[in-house]
Simulated assay, not measured.
Amino acid sequence: MSNKSASFSIKNWSQDDQPREKLRDKGKTILSDAELVAILIGSGNKTESAVDLSKRILASVNNNLNALGKLSIKQLMEFNGIGEAKAISITAALELGRRRRLEDASASDKITSSRTVFTIMQPILGELPHEEFWILYLNNSNKILQKTQLSKGGITGTLVDVRLVLKNALEVGATSIILCHNHPSGTLKPSTSDKEITKKLKTAAESLDIKVLDHLIVTEKAYFSFADEELL
């Protein structure tokens, strides 16, 4: 490594500019997203410090960590100074963050509002590039007994096996269910198919005294609730 490139290694910066030491001495919350990513990659390239390179990577996704988490290892390696090992470190760290959010959401498993459903399901569905349809099975205290993926891919009425949904509801002792699926496009408007599925499941469930409490459409940052919009 040349002297020029060595100067861009974190350990050669002044103490105040070293993210690792800054985190140790001043706490993790004081660091910017770029400084945290810089700790992951350790060094930049011949012309950029690790922080400057991290800033450029974040700028490419409009400083959105969820969007950064969607980048593939190959896409990350397109940045000068990011090799396979660094790309893997970034991917692993962001995946741990996603799993942490999922665990935090699961810890609060009593449904009190549509916002609670979104908090639980966003880490599962919000960042997927394809559609998935899930059923939440609840007891009479509105606590989740089970979360089940019903289908993966495009959603149509023919893909919803009503008998399977209700059979599972009876097996787990559910008194109500919540439907949930994602729109990778980001649109929150329910399609005709979405409305038909909701009606189909609601009618079938009522015959067994099982309530359909809501149907949520989830995107990366927001949601649409059939119950809140009085479409149930």
Rank of each mutant, 00 (worst) to 15 (best):
A59N: 12
L145V: 00
K152V: 04
S185C: 05
E171I: 00
D214V: 07
V61F: 14
E95D: 05
D16H: 15
E132I: 05
S72C: 08
K167L: 08
T198W: 06
K55C: 10
Q122V: 03
T219G: 08
S7W: 14
N142F: 02
R99A: 10
E229M: 05
T187W: 15
I178T: 04
N45F: 05
F226I: 06
L71R: 03
L58M: 05
S106Q: 15
P19D: 07
L166M: 08
F133H: 06
I111D: 04
G126D: 09
E229K: 05
K189M: 04
R163K: 10
A204R: 01
F79P: 00
K55P: 02
E196V: 15
Q75D: 14
P184V: 05
T119R: 11
Q122A: 12
E132K: 14
L65V: 15
V162L: 11
E131Y: 13
Q149H: 07
V160H: 02
R56P: 00
D52V: 12
L76D: 00
F133L: 06
N3S: 09
T119F: 00
E48D: 14
R56N: 14
Q15V: 08
S89L: 06
T112W: 08
D209K: 08
L128M: 03
L164I: 13
G97P: 00
Q15L: 09
L40K: 04
I39W: 00
G186M: 06
K74W: 11
D25A: 11
L208T: 14
D109A: 08
I177V: 15
K167S: 10
L150T: 14
A87I: 14
Q149P: 10
H183R: 05
E78G: 06
D109S: 13
G69K: 13
G186L: 03
I120C: 01
L136T: 02
D161C: 07
K195G: 01
S49K: 03
R100T: 09
H181E: 05
L71Q: 05
A227G: 10
A34I: 00
L179I: 12
S225I: 09
K26A: 15
E132G: 12
D16I: 12
E35Y: 06
E103A: 13
F8T: 03
T148A: 05
D209N: 10
E35P: 02
I82Y: 02
S191F: 08
S113A: 14
P190H: 12
I10L: 11
L150N: 03
I197E: 03
S2P: 03
L166A: 09
A204S: 12
L128Q: 02
N140P: 04
